[in-house]
Every structure is written in C-alpha cells, then in structure tokens.
Amino acid sequence: MNAFDWSVIGQYAGYVAAGIPITLLVSAGAVVIGIVLGVPIAILRLRAWAPVRWLLLGYVELFRNTPVLVQVVWFYYVLPVLTGGNLPPVWAGTLAIGLNTSAYIAEAVRGGIVGIASGQGEAARCIGMSYWQSMRWIILPQTSRRMLVPFANTFVVVIKESALVSYIGVLDILHRGDVVQVSTFKPLEAYTLVAVFFLIVITAVTQLMRFMEKRWSPAVD
C-alpha cells in the first residue's frame, strides 16, 4: 500500500467541497418537509376521523419500517412516472428523505403533545377551552419549545442520511468522492475527504443549533 497521497487532497478538496451546498440543500429541504408534514400528522393522528388516523398510522409505519435507501431509489423511479416530467434526482432524494423524516417527527411530536395534554391540556379544557384552543395556546407553544432539541438532532441525522442521494446520481459530498476515486484510483484519499467534509458540516450545524437553543429555549419546568 502506498503512502497517503496528499496531492490528491490538494487537487480535489475544492471539488469535493463543492458538494457541501448540495448536501445542505437536500438536508435542509428534507427537514423542512419533515416538520411541515410531521407536525400536522402528529396532531391529526390524535384527533382526526378514524379512517384518516389509520391512513396516517400506515404512512408512519411504512416509512419507519423500510430502508431509507429503498425509499430514495423508489422515489427516484416513481417520481418521473407520477409527474410525467424529468425532475432532477435531487428532488426525488430530498422528497424521500423528507417524507421519511416526517414519519419520525410525527411520532416525536405526538409524544410531546400527549405528555403536555395530560396535565396542562386538561387544565385548559377545564376552563372551557375547545380542543383546538388548548392546542393553539397551551400544547403547541410548549411542544415547539420542547421539540427544539429533538429537531436539531433530527437535522444531524438527516445530514448523514442525505449521503444516500449519491446512489441516484446527485453530486453531493459522497458522490463527488466517488468521482475522485474513479478518476484517481485513490479510494483512501477520496473518502477521507468525504468524511472530513461531513465532519465539518455536521460540527458547524451542531454548533449553530446549540447557539440557537441557548437563545430560544427558555427553561421550562
């Protein structure tokens, strides 16, 4: 085995780093989809008309009990069929990871809602608030605060999962590593670059989240 070839690092670092915006875009998009869908799913799973609740239970179980990679590939092939057009694969990847994330977020938020509903939600109902008023004024404001940390953790998980989009040809950090590996025959150097850039991205995001938590999450007893 040859010594570690630093020239590969020097030559291709910029190329691999150019995948960072793609990785972040896919991750952020997936988290947004996850929250935008996950929170209503959580609420509806608690209160909606029974068939809707069963449907949503099926949705959650489906996404939690199949591999994310399978979901990514499936959406990659099914999306063009559904839309008729040729959406870039980055959409399919973001959508698949986003829907998967929404299933996990729905479960976490549901737990948060149930926890608050039993005491304070009941107090709100007992002064005459409707279910939706108690959601609006008591349960959701507190759930969103309590969810800040889990959401931040979800973001980190999603960044790691986003590497799966390389499988369908999206030029994220990992896929660029593949390209370097193929053209230089230096897998060790190529994937070291990949790992280092993921580490940088995740560390930066973690720090940012920690900073935001401090600012926005007042102590709740």
Partner: peptide
C-alpha cells in the same frame, strides 16, 4: 353539544393536585 360542554366547564372551576399551570 361539544361547544356547550366547553361552555359548561367555564362555570365549573377545577383545581388540580399538581397545579397544572402553563409553564410558558
């Protein structure tokens, strides 16, 4: 009906063992 049940509760104050104040 449900609205009237909510209205009924406005007339019946309830105090709980564990206070159940809104911490936020």
């Amino acid at each position: 009906g449900e609205p009237e049940r909510n209205q009924l509760r406005t007339h019946l104050g309830m105090v709980f063992q564990h206070f159940n104040l809104y911490p936020h």
